[in-house]
Design a protein around this nucleic acid. Structure first.
Lengths: 271, 271
DNA sequence: CTTGACTCTCAAGCTGCTGGAGACTGCATA
DNA sequence: TATGCAGTCTCCAGCAGCTTGAGAGTCAAG
């Protein structure tokens, strides 16, 4: 019979861990002196301990290990557990590989530019958004602002309050400033159905903008620099081995008179 | 100015996380109503939040991110940090890949045998062990027990108390039962220097057995089945794409009269 | 009998949140 | 004006697998 310290040396498992396993009932000592409370272990417990370590190495939790060792699980259930683990670990591997790629990317950027970028691009999961929207082909990109205002001035008097920032969707595969096919979308409650026409005579469509994975970034400042953002985001997407999977959106997050200047979120659905 | 819930919707970060970042000082709200305690955020804070998310995606801790964002770290230090991260993640990737391989291995084993093995083999890190040892070529493997006893009966009267279980080292590249080159090692304190000869006239050597990574397993039961353990451990090592990197050791963990029967630990240095 | 190494039992800490309890606040409706 | 009710606030606990530390008791040797 060994005291916990000697046993710890033999099995090369820290004393604190042995005590923890003992508390969990995962590896109870062979005997405990009722007077001193000293734990006594025997060499015969080493196989069990090794089984614990091996299963832990497979990524199983101590609780799962407990179940396996003490409840004498049927082989089928064990197989199921391991298959689950396999999937889980496979997932983690690819996540970590992606993370590694991101870090290396960032390192290259730092080496070449000697600093971090000002705007960051991040992957986010977008939800489906019920909206009312107007779509039009504009001959002048500057008219987008007017179109937005038009929409608001039709919705407000009709008692329809957008429940989130309005955003535009650019339907052109290529950006064409002389014929800009743009849709302005106002998020609304699902209950909204009847929508008036705009003062300009345009009619709203009621639809749901589908969500999903998107590369997202924030542009802060004057609007005319925004094409640089598109360039950067395009590069980012190809760098990360993703593909554009939908039309880009721009969400206008500030009121027109915001003292901090305009803030725009650019979203690129990807897959 | 947005309340926390609206801001949370915009940036798609849970309210609880925003509150946490606020408490850490990582993303303090633009203002806090002193009466109600309500946090108010502005769209201008989104770039900072995105930076936080992007850095978190690289695997940096919130504390590190804090330092990067607020202390305006020089690019050099940043590079260092990222290189460290890269190494760390690379390590994790290969660990997880190894784990995946282990799980798949185990799954194959279960499919073919329909149960878990009785003895587990685990990788452990051995420490350097100062020992006194005797080495001899035996014509009969059975004589190992005698050799061990011989050693003890020379050490004890000399006042030298081994501080751990004695173990044997098998120096044969191939197991040859008619000429077994075996060394019996008794772990001793570093202060021990002078060692007597054995009753049989053999002389001890004072040396340090080098540690390192080893595949380790426990054999419980009669000694004559031990060759199976060697077979299994050899297969395990090649299965795990490791290589034998030293002579195998056997540690005798029970006293000869232990009621639980003998327990032996078999160790194979690997790399 | 003392010393020093070991052991015991609690409790807290790590990381990045999440979830819940109990109390307020703010806006909209009856 | 009262009343909801959704949103917000501040704690506090929990996760997983230990590790660390405090304060107290135990064991073997000198």
């Amino acid at each position: 019979m060994y005291r916990i310290g000697e046993f710890s040396k033999i099995c090369r498992v820290p004393v604190s861990a042995l005590r923890y396993y003992s508390d969990l009932g995962l590896l109870p000592p062979e005997s405990i002196d009722p007077e001193s409370g000293y734990r006594y272990y025997s060499a015969g417990q080493l196989p069990r301990l090794n089984r614990i370590l091996a299963l832990k190495d497979l990524g199983l939790s101590l609780e799962e290990i407990s179940a396996i060792l003490d409840e004498d699980l049927p082989a089928g259930e064990l197989r199921g557990m391991l298959r689950l683990k396999r999937a889980e670990i496979g997932q983690r591997v690819s996540e970590e590989q992606a993370r590694l790629a991101r870090v290396e990317n960032r390192l290259r950027m730092i080496e070449s530019e000697d600093r971090m970028p000002d705007q960051e691009i991040v992957l986010k999961e977008l939800e489906d958004v019920p909206v009312v929207s107007i779509r039009e082909v504009l001959s002048n990109p500057q008219d987008v602002g007017m179109l937005i205002a038009d929409g608001y001035s039709a919705l407000m008097p009709a008692g329809i309050m957008p429940i989130g920032a309005c955003f535009s969707i650019y339907h052109d595969p290529e950006f064409d400033p002389t014929a800009l096919d743009v849709e302005i979308a106002y998020p609304v409650a699902e209950t909204v159905t009847d929508v008036p026409d705009t003062p300009g005579g345009r009619s709203f469509e009621r639809r749901v903008v589908r969500g999903g994975r998107a590369a997202v970034t924030i542009h802060q400042g004057p609007y005319d620099m925004i094409d640089q953002v598109y360039t950067r985001i395009g590069k980012w997407i190809s760098d990360h081995e993703l593909q554009i999977a939908g039309e880009p959106q721009e969400a206008y997050l500030t009121a027109p008179d915001d003292p901090g200047g305009p803030v725009t979120e650019i979203r690129f659905p990807v897959a």
